Computed example of a mutant assay.
Amino acid sequence: MTLEVIAFNIESCALIEKAGGGRIELCANPPEGGTTVSMGMMKAARKAVGIPIFPIIRPRGGDFLYNDEEYTIIQDDIRLAKETGMDGVVIGLLNVDGTVDKIRTARLVELAYPMEVTFHRAFDRTPDPLQALEDVIQCGCNRILTSGLADTALQGLDMLQQLVKAADQRIIILPGSGIRSGNISQLATATGLQEFHTSARTTRFSRMSYENPGMQESQNSFTVDPAEITACIEALSGAGHLQL
């Protein structure tokens, strides 16, 4: 069993590994759902932990329809991820009609090799998930991060079960969104899956002693809750899904 946890800062990377997380999805910019971190952040994360690190390769927030300039940025960032010793990358490209951009996705998988490739929750924006599943498999991706086309993985449980059956072990289905220690065992039992994705998110309050009262933008940030990571692992273990 593998518990993948999102890290939005370098502090989180060490906390995830120490708490027992099995893989890190490295992201910047949580308010927009995660964008690519800097090369410096990739280097620092690689020095900080020994567990696998998969940076998201997403040049901006918003939709997953990228122009030629953005596609070039994605390619360059995948090369940087490889150079800095990342174990995999997380990508997602769609056509204007919401279908998987198979041509460019397949090229990125080839570029990323030998790193693994996860197709992220752009998958949850597709109009035909079973066809999208076949498309992502054809592109050569290793896994799909999905909530079953719902706001949370628990709400999308029926679709997740359909995807697991249709995948037939040809690709890893990685459920994510809203997964916490209180529901992870239920999802494991209902799907039979071996990998799970969680943010285990908590607020990191600013330590600044002075804040300009005329500025409304918060200086707080996100980090991970090590106790929540441990609780997720214990929930899986207690239900017989994970042997520690």
Results as ranks from 00 to 15, higher is better:
S12F: 01
G21W: 09
L65W: 14
A45V: 04
I10S: 01
F64P: 12
R60W: 00
N29S: 15
L26I: 06
K18Q: 15
F64T: 10
R23H: 03
T35A: 10
N9W: 00
E4T: 13
M42Y: 07
G33I: 11
L3P: 04
R58I: 03
T36W: 04
L15P: 05
C13Q: 02
K43D: 06
L3G: 06
S12L: 05
M39L: 10
A28L: 12
I56N: 00
L15Q: 15
M1Y: 03
G22T: 09
F54H: 15
P30F: 01
G50T: 15
G61D: 09
F64L: 10
I51N: 14
A28E: 13
V37F: 00
D63W: 10
P30S: 03
G62Y: 05
L26M: 04
I51L: 15
E25N: 10
M41V: 05
R60N: 03
I51R: 08
I10N: 02
R23D: 06
P31T: 09
P55R: 03
G34T: 04
S12A: 15
R46M: 00
D63R: 11
T36K: 06
G62D: 11
A28Y: 07
S38R: 05
D63K: 12
P52S: 13
T35I: 10
E11A: 04
A7F: 04
I51K: 09
L65D: 13
I53S: 08
E25G: 05
M41Q: 01
F64C: 12
E4R: 11
N29Q: 13
P55Y: 08
E11R: 13
P31I: 08
I57A: 00
R58S: 03
G33R: 10
